[in-house]
Nucleic acid binder design. Structure first.
Length: 253
DNA sequence: TAAGATGATTGTCC
DNA sequence: GGACAATCATCTTA
């Protein structure tokens, strides 16, 4: 019963629907007019689902035909035997029932295999984790600028997060992930990030200098938290191990 | 193609 | 619930 429900949910119970979808999906796939990877994958999924559906119905028809043929064959045999011994209608009915039970158990196996195939297909196409994409250069730049200009306290407030989300065109979770990864990787290997830190710190210095020379306050990144700030535990454990960076980040440098 | 870089996930701690 | 640390999975580069 559960198998039937699942097959019904996947549209397996309607052979015509299967053919129609298969044709539509095949046309979509062949035309190449699929806008995004996702829908391309989904059309591939539909094509494969339709193939499974067709195989299922072909096999089902075959089994039904075989069942009928075998039943007829056994009936004929019984009729032959009835010449030599008396065969009651009950006995014939019993034999037919046995045959039908056998074939329905085979059908059940077919349904089970079909369900398994559909589930594998689903897990491969629909439930699969989306592929990772690197952020674009601009987004990485913005995130790095914020990180290095807030080295003394590289944590994002809700507001800053929202702003970074807007600027980088990524999600809040991605911003949080990025900062989480960055903090850990920076701490683990400050030496490796020194050059990068110097570069972004220099950028910030230039930016702030330009901004102040124009008589305006720097507004990007939001609420710039002077990187030269002292007293932060983070600063102590991280930035102070990079003397050139420290020098660069001194307020009066 | 291997190694390194990087975004995402998971488990743990506070 | 957020931060951290370890790890996974994928991408990029030499």
């Amino acid at each position: 019963m559960r198998l039937d429900n699942m097959l019904l949910a996947e549209g397996m119970s309607d052979p015509e629907k299967g053919r129609g979808l298969a044709a539509a999906a095949a046309v979509a796939a062949a035309s190449g007019g699929v806008g995004v990877d996702n829908s391309a994958e989904h059309s591939d999924y539909r094509v494969k689902l339709s193939q499974i559906r067709q195989i299922y119905h072909t096999e089902l028809e075959k089994y039904e035909q075989a069942c009928n043929e075998f039943t007829t064959h056994v009936m004929n045999l019984l009729r032959e035997q009835s010449r030599t011994r008396p065969i009651s209608p009950k006995e014939i009915e019993r034999m037919v029932n046995i045959i039908h039970r056998k074939f329905s158990s085979i059908q059940m196996q077919l349904k089970q295999s079909t369900c398994e195939a559909v589930m594998i297909l689903r897990s491969r196409f629909l439930d699969a984790r989306p592929k990772r994409r690197n952020f674009n250069k601009q987004a990485t730049d913005i995130l790095n600028e914020y990180f290095y200009s807030h080295l003394s306290n590289p944590y994002t407030s809700e507001e800053a997060k929202k702003e970074l989300v807007k600027k980088c065109v990524i999600t809040v979770a991605q911003v949080s992930n990025w900062f989480g990864n960055k903090r850990i990787r920076y701490k683990k290997n400050i030496g490796k990030f020194q050059e990068e830190a110097n570069m972004y710190a220099a950028r910030t210095v230039v930016y702030v200098t330009n901004a102040s020379s124009q008589g305006s306050q720097a507004n990007s990144p939001s609420t710039p938290n002077s990187a030269g700030e002292t007293g932060s535990p983070w600063l102590c454990s991280a930035i102070q191990q990079v003397p050139p960076l420290c020098a660069l980040l001194q307020p009066n440098s």
